[in-house]
């Protein structure tokens, strides 16, 4: 499953109420490392479809959500389980490193 876009308006339904773990990628257009990590997140989203949902939140357009979660570096990838942040990955990482971080939730 490809990643989908999430906004302040549907954050509650798509992320907080989700029954599967959701990784939210806080990103912006101008951020090089965000662009670098984007295809990796697409791959993980496809490979682990059903186990994890990966969504992208544009911090430029949806500043209020970014602020609520105290985002001050991008990319930041927060993993939500049952509406709570259980893990926060800051900065672009190679695919094996991200998969390793998520392993207990996608195993």
């Amino acid at each position: 499953m490809a990643t989908e876009k999430v906004t302040a308006a549907n954050f509650n339904d798509v992320v907080l109420k989700s029954t599967t773990p959701v990784l939210v990628d806080f990103w912006a257009e101008w951020c090089g490392p965000c662009r670098a990590v984007a295809p990796i997140l697409e791959e993980i989203s496809n490979e682990y479809a059903g186990k994890i949902k990966i969504v992208k939140l544009n911090t430029d357009e949806e500043g209020s959500v970014a602020m609520k979660y105290g985002i001050s570096s991008i990319p930041t990838m927060n993993l939500f389980v049952g509406g709570e942040v259980v893990k926060s990955i800051v900065g672009a990482r190679p695919k094996p490193a991200i998969v390793r971080e998520l392993s207990e939730y996608i195993g």
């Binding site: 090089g32 490392p33 965000c34 001050s72 570096s73 930041t76």
Partner: peptide, 12 residues
């Protein structure tokens, strides 16, 4: 880091 400490001004 990611909570105030950063290495990339253009990103953050």
């Amino acid at each position: 880091s990611g909570r105030g400490v950063s290495w990339c001004a253009t990103c953050d």
